[in-house]
Amino acid sequence: MSSKEKYKEIFVKSLSIDNAKFHEKLKYNEIPEWDSIGHMTLMSGLEEGFNISLETDDIVDFSSFEKGIEILQKYKVKIDE
């Protein structure tokens, strides 16, 4: 499973949405599931999935699926196909 597939899977599981609702342009608060509570769940899912500990600023900046890829690079997590 590529790191991108894993990244997607964490999104789908943490936000408990089905695949059809997921797309790579997904943004915070764009769907009801990605609200403040969903966001915290997603962050804890990513921390567990990639064994990292996200800084508060990064948690606040984590505004979309794409932005996430950029942030994860800071933690030496490369998201590629």
């Binding site: 943490s14 915290m40 804890s44």
Partner: peptide, 11 residues
């Protein structure tokens, strides 16, 4: 349990 712990008692 882990998720509830992260979001705290209020959420």
């Amino acid at each position: 349990i882990k998720m509830w712990s992260t979001i705290g008692a209020r959420a």
